[in-house]
């Protein structure tokens, strides 16, 4: 199910039982069961078995379940993919993706695993994490590399390191990468996710950064702590004014289509059919936030 609300995707270290146990309580849109950076090398094997059992037996109550596999420069990712697909994950997040061939390599292994474990062909989605200058340059070819691609996510830590850049609260150093990735995602028709915010105590800056990326057009953000989830969801929740305007737009466009009028005025603003997608997106976010129950 590629098209759904994904405001938050929280990383959960597969090595830590307490972390994977009750993440759904905080109602993230997705969990990312992590086999990569968070897991100590000596526990990679154990984390993979834990991943499989978690996917197979633990009920995340509708929260989408992604798996971040180990990098394609390791000898771990192939078995990670088999375990993830056998367990029934919704999708696989590929770290350090730099080119189309990275995605097709994983897509081929996923196809083989789907056959091996009797899962529906094509049912496992992919998401690419862009973490280097080359990845950002190749954003469009990565975004269009497979029909399994659901979205792309930016990883600021590795990106800034390789750019010799310093993270700032304003995010100036990330602006071009964010914009380029976003343009590639929109051109390819896939979703776009921002990097994690690492200062867990600085909620004010987290909110500012989320407001920035939401206004830029991002669909959501990767998350490292449950306490960031509600704050991010709040930013992505339409205001009453935005919700009412979206409802008025959809109602007016529906009526005008019946009467053959192409352009009309809603709440004092000129509106045409180009506004419909935006209005639908507002209602989708409002539904996800529980503030709209209608059926427009």
């Amino acid at each position: 199910m590629k098209n759904r609300v994904r405001r938050t995707m929280i990383f959960l270290n597969c090595q830590r039982a307490a972390l994977i146990k009750d993440a759904y309580i905080y109602k993230p849109d997705c969990v990312i069961l992590d086999l990569e950076d968070a897991v100590a090398h000596s526990e990679k094997d154990s984390a993979r078995v834990s991943l499989y059992n978690t996917l197979k037996y633990h009920d995340y109550r509708g929260v989408e379940r992604w798996v971040r596999i180990n990098g394609l420069d390791t000898n771990l990712y192939k078995e990670d993919i088999r375990a993830a697909v056998a367990g029934g994950c919704d999708g696989i997040r590929i770290p350090k993706t730099e080119k189309k061939a990275d995605v097709t390599l994983v897509a081929d292994l996923v196809s083989a695993a789907e056959k091996e474990f009797g899962r529906e062909e094509g049912s496992t989605m992919l998401m690419a994490a862009l973490e280097s200058p080359l990845a950002v340059i190749n954003a469009y070819e990565i975004a269009t590399s497979s029909p399994r691609m659901m979205g792309m996510a930016l990883s600021a830590g590795d990106f800034c390191s390789s750019m010799h850049a310093v993270r700032t609260p304003e995010g100036t150093e990330m602006f071009t990468a964010r914009q380029q990735m976003l343009i590639a995602c929109r051109a390819a028709g896939i979703m776009c996710f921002d990097t994690v915010f690492t200062d867990l105590d600085d909620t004010e800056s987290l909110i500012k950064e989320t407001e920035l990326i939401m206004k830029m057009g991002f669909d959501g953000k990767s998350v490292i702590s449950p306490k960031q989830i509600a704050l991010i969801h709040k930013v992505f929740t339409p205001t009453e004014k935005e919700l009412n305007h979206a409802i008025h737009v959809l109602e007016a466009v529906k009526e005008s289509a019946a009467s053959g009028v192409g352009v009309l005025v809603v709440d004092g603003k000129m509106v045409d059919v180009a506004w419909v997608e935006g209005a639908k997106r507002v209602l989708k976010l409002a539904r996800a936030a529980g503030i709209y129950k209608g059926d427009l």
Partner: peptide
């Protein structure tokens, strides 16, 4: 949880 217990024994 049961899934964790199974994973650790396995």
């Amino acid at each position: 949880l049961d899934c964790t217990l199974r994973a650790r024994v396995e």
